[in-house]
Amino acid sequence: MDVIITKNLTKYYGEIKGVENLSFTVKKGEVFGFLGPNGAGKTTTIRTLLGYLQPTRGSATIFGKNIEEDIVEIKREVAYIPGDLNIYGHLTGKQFLDYFAALRSREMTLLDELLKIFKVPLERKVKGYSKGMKQKLGIIQAFMDDPEMVIMDEPTAGLDPLLQQKFYDFILKQKKKGKTMLFSSHILSEVDKICDRVGIIRNGELVALEDVETLKHKRGKKIRLKIKGKPETFKGPKDIKIKDGWIEFVVTNNIDQLIKKLSKYTILDLEINDFALEDIFIHYYEGQT
């Protein structure tokens, strides 16, 4: 079942392009990563989906409901963690959560669990919170009533690595329960870790939409090796790079052929690595300034 369906979703700010012709789907129970550098259009997409911005063209549905007509109904099932999040400074953490719980009018089934994972000083005014504490409170408010889907705009910004890990664990746990997650990020390692599928956005357009695993397979393996003698004498694929005596290239399909070829050289050192998303990312953004 497709939870989000967008068709040629387009948002222009006057003459300036935000995003153009986005067509993608997010399936129920998957973690969908929305990847791209700052300014690529990730936030614009999310804000258009959630009704903060009016689409210039195109359409989108969430849980079968049109974003332009049923946004209030949609928000009963979909929570949001905004990027660059700000919370009422004059309220204490507890007052803020009570206020939002009243607005949701649902059972706060996950609140206790969340408060145990993401500890925040509930009795202190949010004004005195650090960026990380605010971010934690933002995560808590989004998940506290166990919504069907959570849309997150760079949710790990401001969290230390330990908390990031706890957050990933929590996301994966929610996923196991069949909940859907869409989040944007420019940090590839986290997308690599928790996403099932990824959409890569560049200049407001979707340039790739793939399973994370397929994407990595498609890009093959990264080979780095040192041989006895001058590295320039090595004959391999066309896109060989030589750096500090290391020969670097990518093999996409026939690894056996490569090994046989390597047997003709005296190998001093050899590294074979899976393509990381970083490399894919660089590939998609190559030639872009």
């Binding site: 209030v72 905004p82 700000n86 009422y88």
Partner: peptide, 14 residues
Amino acid sequence: EGKTIDLLMSNPVS
């Protein structure tokens, strides 16, 4: 201005 509207509007209120 303070961006708190983002969170307020994330609730099911028109």
